[in-house]
């Protein structure tokens, strides 16, 4: 019997569970390698060649090259590991969060200052008409 995943009906949220951790192992360990400055330099000098050193899927590599964080999440990436990529790019958590929500960084920052995203309509998939 499959493990119950009562969190799968939360909209706009990818919960990093044991299945996703297994799927994302090499992607996340690639991210971890960017903690070291010499690796960051090699990555910057040739992203594709550096990615090819890791046993990642082609989809995972392409998502990294595209800096498509939602895609990386769906392929087993964890946000604390993915943070190593945007930190290497010199970008903030708020920048990355904004790109994942489809907002500009300015709009996202304004939303946070105004108290953040309301949970109303954001608890269950399909809760919000057309949302």
């Amino acid at each position: 019997m499959p493990v119950k995943k009562p969190y799968d009906d939360i909209p706009g949220t990818t919960v990093f569970d044991a299945d996703r951790s297994r799927q994302g192992y090499h992607l996340n360990m690639f991210c971890m390698s960017l903690m070291k400055a010499p690796n960051r330099e090699r990555f910057r000098a040739g992203e594709r060649a550096y990615l090819d050193e890791w046993a990642m899927s082609e989809d995972q590599k392409q998502a990294v090259l595209d800096r498509d964080y939602n895609r990386m999440l769906s392929l087993g990436g964890n946000i604390y590991f993915l943070a190593k990529i945007f930190s290497s790019d010199g970008l903030s958590f708020q920048h990355a969060a904004a790109t994942m929500t489809g907002q500009s960084q300015a709009d996202y920052a304004a939303m946070m200052l105004a108290g953040g995203r309301s949970p109303e309509g954001n608890r269950y998939k399909g809760e919000k008409q057309g949302g």
Binding site: P11, T14, N70, F93, A97, M100, T101, G116, R117, P119
Partner: peptide, 17 residues
Amino acid sequence: MSHQLQGPRAGLINKEF
């Protein structure tokens, strides 16, 4: 306390909770 750093729901804050 409440925060979400990932996905389209990033930025969630729940003062009531």
